[in-house]
Nucleic acid binder design. Structure first.
Lengths: 206, 206
DNA sequence: AGTTTGGGTGTACAGACGTACACCCAAACT
DNA sequence: AGTTTGGGTGTACGTCTGTACACCCAAACT
């Protein structure tokens, strides 16, 4: 398959994915029917099978590309954003707001399916978040001031921070791209990060 | 309606609520069908209408009683649990673990429907969590050391703590009542709270 | 004792669902 | 130029859905 043929197929496939993302927005993946999606895309129900073996496989594809967006976010966050804590915090929150805004449907999908999705999907999302915690704990170990921190202390801090970031992302999604609300959520997120960092700097392992 | 009659009706109603809670456990409220619930309960589909006008009303009733469990948790958490931070933290985490375990189906329901449920349900849950933040900020103001904190600083700390508690509750639910995992999650939650409190104690408003 | 009430039953129907099958026809091959 | 490939179509089927309707009968009333 080459040229225009493949191009058209890819276009329809994208349309299916987008339609599914849009239709599940105010409900859940499990409430999605093949016929609904097909109608939204503008194809006949049976044509759906040319692209996905079943609705569940569609769901898995959506998880896949949503987790891609999550990984892209993590990649951006890991880019060194400054030297002092203040600029690292400001930069991280800015990246979070920007990326969540850019891939709003994907992060919304993750938020909805994290606990309401099928077990396989829940596990994949949990794994993605676990990975973020792990990577953050590695990055934290390279920061000044954490020289004598134990592995466990690093995990405590990174899981605390990732948890707060997830909460912030969920708030941003629920804010439905209202700029004023986003501003307020970002302010709060920066304050949270500062408070956690202050806690970490004065931390004594017990 | 009196005596045995009402008693029997209440028993069937409970059975419907429990069946709905159990059936939606590994999916979502929206995926629930009237006939499924009726079959699980052991009644004929049309008998369902003797108790609820529709599946959506069943959902609202479940939200209602799940939020009751949440309010019960908050009530328990507000009982003074000690004088030093350590015992307050230990007591709070113990209460959280105990209450989430006791009302596991309810908290699981809240976790699933918080972002995947219908707008009305999402709003009700968000309101419940907002209330928790507000109440905590009031309680924090009465604690020693927060005398000169601004309203905003209190909100920052309370939303940070509530966020962490919600995350902990979600982890407990996902742990599916595995005692070893619960222990680990509780340990982590205590560490998180300690770190946040240390951050708060060294906090300087900006 | 006689009547009413109300939860539970059984049948019935229209609509939505997933999906099998035969078919069409333009793009891509030989 | 002739053939194959493959995305999209249309019909058709059995299953599941919500729900309307007539009915039953023990509990609760008068």
């Amino acid at each position: 398959m080459t040229g225009a043929r493949l191009e058209q197929k890819e276009r329809t496939r994208r349309a299916i994915l987008d339609a599914a993302l849009a239709l599940s927005e105010d409900s859940a993946l499990v409430a999605l029917s093949l016929r609904q999606v097909a109608k939204e895309v503008g194809i006949v129900p049976t044509a759906f099978y040319r692209h996905f073996p079943s609705i569940e496989d569609l769901g898995l594809a959506l998880v896949e590309e949503s987790l891609d967006s999550l990984r892209a976010l993590l990649r951006e966050l890991r880019k060194p954003a400054g030297v002092d804590f203040r600029s690292i915090i400001d930069g991280s929150v800015a990246v979070l707001v920007e990326q969540v805004g850019r891939h709003h449907p994907h992060f919304g999908f993750i938020a909805r399916e994290r606990f309401a999705g099928p077990p396989q999907v829940r596990a994949a999302i949990a794994h993605g978040i676990g990975l973020a915690e792990h990577e953050l704990s590695i990055d934290l170990a390279h920061l000044p001031g954490t020289d004598r921190w134990s592995e466990q202390d690093l995990q405590i801090l990174s899981s605390l921070i990732v948890g707060a970031m997830v909460t912030t992302a969920e708030r941003l999604i629920a804010a439905a791209e209202d700029p004023a609300a986003e501003q307020q959520i970002a302010d709060m997120a920066r304050a949270h990060l500062r408070m956690m960092v202050i806690g970490a700097m004065n931390w004594r392992s017990s």
